[in-house]
């Protein structure tokens, strides 16, 4: 899962980034409104963490611009202003959730996972596919009721596939959502990760769709 973090305060951005990466999220960072708007309009993200008090372009303006451009990415607004009027204004501009500074990392992570899950049309917090299940509240995977140990990259790939289990996940999008913006993307390594995952999640399996992408399937090939 890949997030866009928009926060102009460098120390806070660093702390949030550190905390989110520790929770296996891939992350792009924008420190002002203009960069944020550009990234949000051109890249694919599973969710956005948006601070409202931004230099160059106000957070609400950026959000409205995304919504006007048809971007439906779930946005969690992060702000120091906790009046209900501020929140109402945020939701009217198209925010999906609201978190008031200061906040706990757990709170942020839980809300982000829930946002991403709801955005992929999964109502319940537990998403299952055959023997495989994903608990979005905790961000953990189980196979046949037993916890599954995954690396960060493996978690990103598998959470992507399970949340989009009803369709084919394009390879390019999968790559976008797995690697950080500044990471050295080696397309082969996706294949490597998929191979390792296939061993861990059997009998569930990942089907490669030639020239298109990957799909998570619950069990034996039909």
């Amino acid at each position: 899962m890949k997030l866009l973090l928009v926060e102009d305060d460098a120390p806070l951005a660093a702390e949030i980034a550190k905390a989110l990466r520790a929770e296996n999220f891939a992350l792009d960072h924008a420190a002002n409104g203009e960069d944020a708007q550009h990234l949000g309009e051109t890249e694919t993200y599973d969710a956005v963490v948006l601070d409202l008090g931004l230099p160059r372009r106000d957070g609400l303006t950026v959000l409205q611009a995304w919504r006007a451009a048809g971007r439906t990415v779930p946005v969690l607004v992060l702000t120091a202003r906790d009046g209900w009027s501020d929140k109402v204004a945020g939701f009217k501009a198209g925010a999906d959730d609201f978190l008031v500074k200061p906040f706990r990392v757990e709170e942020l992570v839980i809300r982000l996972r829930a946002l991403v899950r709801r955005a992929t049309a999964h109502g319940a917090s537990r998403v299952t596919c055959g023997p495989l299940s994903y608990e979005s509240g905790l961000g953990t995977f189980e196979r046949d009721g037993l916890p599954l140990k995954l690396t960060g990259l493996e978690w990103r790939v598998l959470s992507c596939l399970i949340l989009h289990k009803d369709g084919v996940m394009p390879r390019s999008q999968l790559i976008e959502r797995v690697y950080d913006g500044d990471a050295d993307v080696d397309s082969n390594s996706v294949e490597v990760i998929i191979t390792r995952l296939r061993r861990k999640i059997a009998p569930a399996r990942i089907e490669g769709v030639r020239g298109h992408g990957y799909r998570l399937l619950p069990g034996d090939p039909a």
Partner: peptide
């Protein structure tokens, strides 16, 4: 102004 450093501190 206090809230942003406080948020950093909390994190």
């Amino acid at each position: 102004g206090l809230k942003t450093p406080l948020a950093t501190l909390t994190l």
